[in-house]
Simulated scan of single mutants.
Amino acid sequence: MKEMDYVWHLRAKMAEQGMFATTDLQPRLAERGVSLSREQTYRLVTGHPQRLSMSILIALCDILGCTPNDLIEPRIVEASNQKVAGETLSPKSRVTARRTTINRPGTTP
């Protein structure tokens, strides 16, 4: 099975343009009609966005003078469905049981 992933190069592209703070990007986005809060801009630059609107992507490409291919590098990884003897499970695939307590109004635990 193949797993799809990508590498987000926004921070590197910003550095190539001399922009080293997320606050450098916010007014330039606003000039292009993209209104993001300080926190949203920070997450866009430092994180790994799962959803990205086309207007933001186009604005970023315009600001940085690049193409979407320069910002997003797809990665395809072959993943095995079979567990090999002695192999440990990744933290994502571990399932842990947790006891749940339901407290109803008017009753004391």
Rank of each mutant, 00 (worst) to 15 (best):
E16V: 08
Q50M: 05
Y6E: 01
M54V: 13
R32G: 01
R98A: 08
E78H: 04
R51E: 10
I76S: 01
A97D: 10
V7L: 13
L10S: 03
N103Q: 15
R104L: 14
T88K: 11
R75W: 02
A30F: 13
G106P: 00
T22M: 04
M19W: 10
A85Y: 11
Q40A: 15
S90D: 15
D24N: 12
A15Q: 15
I58R: 12
V77C: 07
C61D: 07
T22R: 07
T88G: 03
R94E: 14
D62C: 06
T23M: 03
T96M: 11
I102L: 07
T41W: 03
D70Y: 05
L25D: 03
R94W: 11
Y42S: 11
E39A: 11
M19I: 03
H48N: 14
V77T: 14
K13P: 00
H48I: 03
T23N: 06
G106A: 07
E73C: 07
A21E: 15
R32M: 01
K83T: 14
P91E: 06
G86W: 02
K83V: 14
P49R: 04
S93I: 06
L44Y: 03
P27V: 02
K2V: 00
T101V: 15
H9A: 11
S90A: 15
P74C: 05
R11N: 10
E39H: 12
K83W: 12
L52T: 05
A15Y: 09
Q50R: 15
H48E: 14
A85T: 05
L52Q: 02
S53H: 13
M19F: 13
V45E: 12
I56Q: 04
N81D: 11
E78R: 03
T101Q: 12
I56Y: 04
